[in-house]
């Protein structure tokens, strides 16, 4: 029987995998942003599980907890910037997906 913290650590690992799959497979930019947030929260959960293992009576180690709060806030600001970029892309071009990469060599010209 694994401990609760290890269980959530494994769940965090699975979330990173699920998010990575979504990031690669989904074409719509908002779906990619959503998948990226799944990866981020999976990483936070792994980190939190590591913190929870070291927990005394009053909950886990406070240092990783504080860093995860910082991370959640920074993730939101990155998401907001990404959404603003996506909306600008949509307004300028009407596209909701990223254009394919130009063929190699075309970039330098």
């Amino acid at each position: 029987m694994t401990s609760a913290a290890t269980l959530y650590g494994l769940a965090g690992a699975a979330l990173v995998g699920i998010g990575l799959y979504g990031l690669a497979v989904q074409a719509h930019v908002l779906r990619k942003i959503l998948a990226f947030n799944l990866i981020g929260s999976g990483v936070f959960l792994v980190f939190g599980a590591v913190a929870g293992r070291g927990g005394g009576a009053g909950g886990g180690d406070p240092v990783p907890q504080a860093m995860v709060i910082t991370g959640i806030v920074v993730a939101l600001s990155a998401t907001a910037l990404a959404v603003a970029l996506a909306l600008r892309l949509f307004r300028e071009t009407g596209r909701v997906t990223l254009p394919p990469d130009p063929p190699a060599g075309a970039r330098d010209g």
Partner: peptide, 8 residues
């Protein structure tokens, strides 16, 4: 909450 991190 289960991980004891109520702030988070």
């Amino acid at each position: 909450v289960r991980l004891g991190a109520v702030d988070v």
